[in-house]
Design a protein around this nucleic acid. Structure first.
Lengths: 347, 347
DNA sequence: TTGTAGGCGTTATCAA
DNA sequence: TTGATAACGCCTACAA
């Protein structure tokens, strides 16, 4: 590894000058000519600063601790991590991941991360759970992902469930469906009532009646299948908004048994949690993606803005990120997630 | 943060002694009495060594770079990362993850990781692809996960596809199926022929005929559905081994349309890539899990053994991990993955 | 405009 | 058995 001293020696200057130039602090300190020389020899030698030494001095590591409570065992994980990764990388940060999934030694793992000197934490749950932030983390910059802080002390990024329900239902309306059912989830998830409200709002806005008989919440397996079966027979819906792809499968099964073809006789829109349907049924099923990537992405952005002390205007966030530097990654036109922040006026 | 100097001052000794004691190198160097005093004051002050300073000195960071080429965008990722995580954590290592998924700047990302001083790399592809290791990594300890090094220079851990095919088929045989079909994948994946061989071997071992008409490779969507439909009508299989859950779905759809019930009229075993079926169809569909967790786990073990210079006997690996210290994590009785290593006699 | 020197928190060498 | 002391590579007053 070539060090700063090497560069200094070969360029015939001192370490201090090299440091100044390579950190962009040379304006008015180092003669432009010398600066250029330094830059060139650095490039020639393939010099890269040693992060450890730098961090030891500055006590900033440019590492973010990514903690996933339940994420890693689910298929959802990838997107969040990838989003956080991309954002982090744009700003010169890197992710130190740890999953405390069902581990007894959560505290241990977290203090381990602290010892590595991470600058802040992304704390990622699943399905937007209400969460108590571990004591160990409360004195660090921290942003929650797909989770909500019970005490509302920390910013969080969560899916805009209402919008998901609204958009999905709107698609069915636009497709000409007249009797649109909602196959929900009977587990007590935050998402459930919000998606339901979105579904109802979309119907109302379109001047369509809200019929409770068209709404059924199910769990899994046999009972779920029977409940959907009943819905088919008693209500004969022509459109289905499904809480997720697992639920959508029951609709498929029932349709198949009745000789109905999805995409012709009935329409189905589901929230795609597992990607298997996107891969398999693309032409048949319309899916709404959960904004996992976006949550990771904007969560990391927010965290970095906190770490670096930027005063982000979160009322127009994440549509606007100023005064953060612009990012290369494309910003989606519609972002199906929202930032919850003390300063936020949204929600 | 309390430092070593603090401990030394309060205990009334020098930094050197503290260092020796706290690193367990005090035998024959430090008087047991002093050692005890040092340990106690360290505990009292809540002293934790600063990893950065330590790393700067030892040039060992106990961080592993986890590179996923394609992993993060798939539902498979979680398991691999989690496995690697668990193993790493057992040995006091931590994972620095980076996904170069479709990134133009792979090299950049990797040199970034190098600057952070990772001790080695886990390079994770998907679906056991033949892989060229990036030049940037070749001078580091490196283990490939779910991938095979084209030049066979580095160890890799990949699924035991033959065994997967064999076991899945065996289950159908044990369930009493007489006409067992294989619904494979027509993409050119390493897994495909190996699973097919496993399927055939299981049939042979059971004294059952191998009928090529019962084997069909499909892609997606309409054509796949029609191919499986044809299989149903022309061959009337009573058991199906499916390449993955996406393929299994076509079997379900066809069965439903014919009024056949899975678990009663026909049996289905599929490799579960997406977890959606495990969640939804548990009682109906039998699934074989891909050994993602195991690959991550054993890959990390191997990498660490290389880093620490242990001479692991890979001929009996991963069943035995000696001379590595024992791990807390349970070792699965049957491991559906195998280590490919220069010294390996397996495969 | 440049260079010198001190320190970040460890570990390791070598006298005492 | 201990304790100075010198690295590790970098940043940053401050002096020249």
């Amino acid at each position: 590894m070539t060090t700063m001293q090497d560069v200094a020696d070969i360029a015939g200057v001192s370490k201090a000058s090299v440091s100044l130039v390579l950190n962009g602090r040379d304006a008015g300190h180092v003669k432009p000519q010398t600066a250029e020389l330094i830059r060139q020899t650095a490039a020639k030698l393939g010099y890269h600063p040693n992060q450890l030494a730098r961090s030891l001095r500055t006590s900033r590591t440019h590492m973010l601790g990514f903690i996933s409570e339940e994420v890693a065992t689910t298929p959802y994980a990838g997107g969040i991590i990838l989003g956080a990764q991309d954002a982090a990388s744009s700003y010169g940060y890197v992710l130190l991941t740890v999953s405390t999934d069902g581990m007894a030694n959560e505290e241990q793992e977290l203090t381990a991360l602290r010892r590595y000197g991470v600058d802040g934490f992304l704390y990622s749950k699943m399905s937007n759970r209400i969460t108590d932030v571990p004591q160990t983390l409360t004195d660090y910059p921290l942003v929650l992902l797909d989770a909500t802080d019970r005490n509302k002390r920390f910013p969080s990024v969560e899916p805009d469930e209402f919008r998901i329900g609204y958009d999905a239902t709107k698609r069915l309306i636009d497709a000409g469906c007249k009797r649109i059912a909602y196959v929900g989830c009977s587990e007590p998830l935050i998402a459930q009532p919000r998606r339901l409200r979105g579904y109802q709002a979309a119907l109302s806005d379109a001047g369509m009646p809200i019929d409770d008989a068209l709404h059924v919440d199910v769990l899994n397996n046999g009972p779920a299948l029977r409940a959907v079966s009943k819905l088919f027979d008693e209500q004969q819906p022509d459109g289905f908004f499904c809480f997720n792809d697992a639920r959508a499968w029951y609709v498929y099964e029932c349709a198949a048994r009745r000789g109905l073809t999805v995409g012709r006789d009935i329409s189905v829109v589901g929230v795609d949690n597992h990607r298997v349907f996107a891969e398999t049924l693309e032409p048949l099923l319309t899916t709404v993606e959960l904004p996992h990537y976006e949550m990771g992405y904007w969560g990391a952005c927010r965290l970095i803005s906190i770490i670096e002390g930027h005063d982000v205007d979160t009322s127009v966030w994440p549509e606007t990120t100023a005064p953060l530097p612009p990012l290369d990654a494309p910003i989606p036109a519609t972002i199906h997630c929202k930032l919850i922040d003390k300063k936020s006026v949204r929600e």
